[in-house]
C-alpha cells in the first residue's frame, strides 16, 4: 500500500503532465483545425502534430507507475 507521499508524488507526476499535454494539444488542435479547413490534404501531418505532446503524459504515467509500484 503506497504511503501519502508516494500517492501525492504519483498524482502530481501524472496530473501536471496531463495538464501540460492538454494545454499543448488544445493549442495544436485549434491551429490544426484551421490548417485542415484551409487545406484538407494536411490532415495527416496535423494528426501527427496532435500526438506529439502525448509524450509528456506518457512519461508522467511511467513515473507515476514507478513511484507506486517500485
Amino acid at each position: 500500500m503506497p504511503d501519502l507521499g508516494q500517492s501525492l508524488g504519483a498524482a502530481l507526476a501524472i496530473g501536471l503532465a496531463a495538464i501540460g499535454t492538454a494545454w499543448a494539444q488544445s493549442r495544436i488542435g485549434v491551429a490544426g483545425s484551421g490548417t485542415i479547413a484551409e487545406n484538407p490534404e494536411l490532415v495527416g501531418p496535423v494528426i501527427i502534430m496532435e500526438a506529439i505532446p502525448e509524450t509528456m503524459v506518457i512519461l508522467g504515467f511511467v513515473v507515476a507507475a514507478m513511484i507506486l509500484m517500485l
Binding site: T55, I58, F61
Partner: peptide, 16 residues
C-alpha cells in the same frame, strides 16, 4: 535521447 525515451510509450500504452 528524448527520442529514445519516447519509446517508453510502448510500455505505457500497453500497461494502460
Amino acid at each position: 535521447i528524448g527520442n529514445i525515451l519516447s519509446y517508453a510509450r510502448i510500455m505505457a500504452i500497453g500497461m494502460a
